[in-house]
Amino acid sequence: MLFSDRSTHRPQPAPVRDVFGTLPDGSPVHRWTLDDGAGITAAVLTRGATLQALYVPDRDGRALNVVLGHPSLDGYLVRGPFFGATVGRYGNRIAEGRFQLDGRTHTVPLCDPPRRNALHGGPHGFDTRLWRAAPLDGGPGSGVQLTLDSPDGDQGFPGALRVTVRYLLTPGRLRIDYRARTDAPTVVNLTNHSYLNLAGEGSPTVLDHELTLAAAAFLPVDAQLRPLHGPVPVHGTPFDFTAPRPVGARIQAPDAQLRLAGGYDHCWCLDGGATPRPRPVALLRHPASGRELTLSTTEPGIQLYTGNALDGTLTGPSGRRYGPRSGLALETQHYPDSPNRPHFPSTELRPGQEYRSTTLLSFTAPGGRAEPGEA
């Protein structure tokens, strides 16, 4: 059954704000806790507009945190795996940190060693910023809106950009809405970088999770983890998740693409491309707990990253260390290096236009499936 089925008449508590920690300059970082009134809670930090925790019940009603994170603010101040962060101005990679727009070359600092890429917006991307926050009032659900002003030239990107990210928790579903406007032509590609483990944060592996992706093609990469060329079919490769498969079923296959990335760290081209309303594109299931996640989005791509670089040096709120493949990211987005690939869907944003993107995370109890919801 859906979690929402058992909570139709339960009021949802208002979001609760507390102080998660203090930045070196004395600024407080607030944590906003959202509650769906049916057993799911989410915690959002103003540092990086970060999803710090997401508690979801299993088939027996036991709620565990299913996203990886740091136990205190100190961990978020050392840039590392981007746990739960809103990444931007451009999520994923820009080759050589350079792109052209309207005949001008723009340079973003490299930050993907040992590779020569600008990754997730540069070394001081949106994940490192303190966002302004206010509760979402007057509508259904428990929510918070975060706002950031990114000035012209920020990390080398042109145009002053105002960004808002809304987290809205309704029974059984977390909705993330992104909006942005600019005063000069620029490029924008925002996403959330949560690492999921439906067995509970701190569980040793996600290789036993079953994954389905609505994607008949993916983007092969070179040694720099940049797209080699256009999409290629997944059929007959370890990248075929068009039917449910365990994440670990073929991750050790003798495949050149898997060797280059040390596992999965690739963009899948979602069937149908970008859409005006979110549609379901991924189903992640943990058979032992019964937790299922249906992920819906308006985006044309999704980056699956299987936590290949996690090495046991980081410890989560559970007190357990994060080893390789202890979490996976499903990053809804446009394609990597799109500003340098005119045949990819465009990430350009111009004055008078509004950047809009929505992603839904819908959770079910065993035997049910959440609906993608309305845009």
Rank of each mutant, 00 (worst) to 15 (best):
L328N: 07
A214S: 13
T8P: 10
V87H: 06
L190I: 09
L211P: 07
Q257F: 10
A256L: 09
A329Q: 10
T313F: 07
G143D: 02
L119V: 02
P317N: 08
G26P: 14
T297I: 04
R17M: 11
T164Q: 15
D137E: 14
A370Q: 12
A63S: 14
L146D: 03
V144I: 07
G263P: 02
T164K: 05
E354H: 06
R226K: 13
P280G: 00
V247F: 06
L314K: 13
S150R: 00
P123C: 02
Q257H: 04
T186S: 13
W32S: 03
E210V: 11
T107V: 15
P28H: 04
D60T: 13
H30N: 12
P28G: 01
N340K: 11
F157L: 07
G202E: 00
R179M: 09
P300Q: 09
Y167N: 08
H286E: 13
D265Q: 05
Q145I: 04
R279M: 11
A160V: 04
P233I: 00
G368F: 06
G312F: 12
D177N: 11
R179F: 08
S27R: 15
E210W: 14
P71K: 06
T105C: 06
R6N: 13
N340I: 06
T46V: 00
G327Y: 05
P204M: 01
T313Q: 10
T147R: 15
Y90A: 00
G138C: 07
S142N: 12
T237M: 08
L130I: 09
L110P: 13
R59Y: 11
R341V: 03
P244N: 07
P300A: 06
L283H: 11
D154Y: 08
P71C: 05
P140M: 01
G91T: 03
Q12L: 14
E292Y: 03
T315Y: 11
P351G: 04
H120N: 14
T298W: 10
A184C: 11
R325M: 06
A14C: 07
G80P: 10
P280F: 06
D222K: 12
W268E: 01
F344E: 04
R166D: 15
R129P: 02
P300E: 05
R89Q: 11
A309Q: 12
A134M: 06
T298E: 08
R181G: 03
G290H: 14
F218L: 08
A85M: 07
F157W: 13
A309T: 07
L360C: 14
P220F: 01
P15C: 03
G39M: 07
T46M: 00
G263R: 01
A365S: 14
S203N: 09
V78D: 12
A375E: 14
R115W: 14
R369K: 14
E371N: 06
E96H: 15
A282M: 12
Y305E: 00
